[in-house]
Design a protein around this nucleic acid. Structure first.
Length: 503
RNA sequence: GGGCCGUUAACUCAGUUGGUAGAGUAUCUGCCUUUUAAGCAGAGAGUCGCGCGUUCAAGUCGCGCACGGCCCA
């Protein structure tokens, strides 16, 4: 990173000049008394009490624009709460401070002390009594009007993106608020927030390929978790009847506009509840988050107007396949017919899983993803998933081929997956054995056997319902972001040059 | 994994039929004490992503590679 250009060289030259004058480029003694927002609030409260002489505010921030006029200048600077303009006059700050100020650049941090006045155009502006350098920037910022647009640079150097693009700052503030709202919502309902292992000896709780790592001292393989599910249910067995975890999962899969290898999930479990209860709770929670974060239950995503305020539709999976996917229901219980139907639509089922004998449930799920999911724009719960693709879900009492499971879709995105938990240890063992067989048949995403989890279930897990909600996808929908990279501060990127190898 | 598109000054972008590189902003110098993308005068700034090839000549054409974006699987 030693590339030079003439702007950086010029700045380094200025820095040498400043050093010769004994100017500290990185001081830490400027005392900030107010934020920009504090000042604006005081003005709003009592505008008549504000003058250019008093009260005196001490503010600090990054200079984003400078208009110089020989012996005076306007400076636009920003702190975390907003922008403020300051007016620097040579006859007010003194010759020495003004000649220092002349050497400062856009991007530098300054501290200013002074009162407030209104300019000719009516903008409240700080009149500097003092101006100090608080931190020198060596590299120049992008141009003020067009800002930084190059997506690669925006992701790799997110700090510049955040400096330059207020809409990007807004997205991440919103994301943080979503997380906070969800946490508050669950804590109010007596859920306990917990942290379970991210490094697991047996990865479980989802169908996905894990990242593998190795513990040197213990001499053991470990996997980064693909889901916290099996640990959270152990906690329910332990007596924590309402738990949640809101943190990162890791899946060793491709990167796309909807997938980042590490992503954030909420998982929560509630004893003595059913999947129907969780649908009610989720609806309430996401509506509350929408109101508290965006101010409304109406959101726009990708040009679609989405109304979170209406009662959310609930539709059985097989009915959705028929009514929305346009699939003849007589095909839905016949593997062969359904495979023929898929290939007539140009959909190759076997390719992804690698398994030779793909089960009926997987074929249905795949067709659902392609033919139904994109059409689920308004919030919709799809219920009743086939048992063979729901190895941790409780079987429906009235149909043992289906489970008490739902998925939530908004704006064509899968947002949540929840179910009444399977708490019969013998049934769970059978399901794991089927998964192991699938794995041996070539399905790399099938579950591993987890004997300890079976043992835990044998101690008894009360009837429980649990759910996972994809926080990144929720953030995408709340911020009208087309790519998951727009809601992850530092999305995973390949090395710019393939020569960075760390041993 | 496949397809399409992109990569040119610090940033945003032009660059015609292959003929030795352009603008705006930013930067530097000078003038300027109420600007709002300030103004006026002048100046500097490029490994055209990387490599190979075709050609008298490549930012431009061809092949390969890297990174990124979108779509598909």
């Amino acid at each position: 990173m030693n590339e030079t250009n003439d702007i950086v060289e010029q700045r380094r030259k200025k820095i040498e000049d400043l050093k010769k004058e004994n100017i500290n480029l990185f001081p830490n003694d400027f005392i900030v008394t107010s934020t920009v927002k504090d000042v604006l609030n005081e003005i709003e409260k009592a505008p008549d009490s504000i003058t250019e002489n008093a009260p005196v505010f001490a503010l600090a921030g990054r200079m984003m624009a400078i208009n110089r006029f020989g012996k005076a200048a306007f400076v636009r600077f920003r702190d975390r709460t907003g922008y403020l303009q300051a007016y620097i006059r040579k006859d007010r700050v003194g010759d020495e401070a003004f000649s220092l100020f002349k050497k400062l650049d856009i991007g530098d941090f300054i501290g200013i002390k002074g009162g407030m006045f209104k300019t000719k155009t009516g903008e409240w502006t700080q009149l500097a009594n003092e101006i100090k350098l608080v931190c020198k920037a060596i590299r120049p910022l992008p141009e003020k009007f067009h800002g930084l647009k190059d997506p690669e640079k925006r992701y790799r150097q997110r700090y510049i993106d955040l400096i330059m693009n207020s809409n990007v700052r807004d997205i991440f503030v919103k994301r943080s608020k979503i997380v906070q709202e969800i946490r508050t919502f669950l804590l109010k309902r007596d859920f306990l927030e917990v942290e379970t292992p991210m490094m697991q000896p047996i990865p479980g709780g989802a169908e996905a390929t894990p990242f593998k790592t190795y513990h040197n001292a213990l001499g053991m393989d470990l996997f980064l978790r693909i889901a916290p599910e099996l640990y959270l249910k152990r906690l329910v067995i332990g007596g924590f009847e309402k738990v949640f975890e809101l943190n990162r999962n890791f899946r060793n899969e491709g990167v796309s506009t909807r997938h980042n290898p590490e992503f954030t999930m909420l998982e929560f479990y509630q004893a003595y509840a059913t999947y129907n209860d969780l649908m009610d709770l989720t609806e309430e929670m996401i509506k509350a988050a929408a109101v508290n974060v965006t101010g409304s239950t109406l959101i726009t995503y990708n040009g679609n107007s989405i109304d979170l305020g209406r009662k959310w539709l609930r539709m059985p999976l097989l009915k959705a396949m028929e009514e929305i996917g346009g699939i003849d229901p007589s095909l839905l219980d016949d593997r062969g017919k359904l495979l023929n139907f898929a290939s007539s639509k140009g959909i190759n089922i076997t390719q992804k899983t690698g398994a030779k004998n793909v089960c009926l449930g997987k074929i249905i799920a795949k067709l659902f993803d392609i033919l139904v999911e994109p059409k689920l724009i308004q919030p919709t719960y799809i219920t009743g998933y086939p048992v063979e693709i729901s190895p941790l879900s409780r079987k429906s009492d009235n149909d043992h081929t289906l489970t008490d499971r739902f998925e939530l879709f908004i704006a064509g995105h899968e947002i949540a997956n929840g179910f009444s938990e399977l708490n019969d240890p013998d049934d769970q063992k059978k399901r794991f054995l089927q998964q192991v067989a699938d794995r041996e048949a070539g399905d790399e995403e099938a579950h591993y056997m987890d004997e300890d989890y079976i043992k835990a279930l044998e101690y008894g897990m009360p009837p429980t319902a649990g759910e996972g909600i994809g926080i990144d996808r929720l953030a995408m929908i709340f911020t009208d972001s087309a790519s998951i990279r727009e809601v992850i501060l530092f999305p995973l990127m390949k090395n710019e040059k393939n020569d960075t190898i760390i041993n």
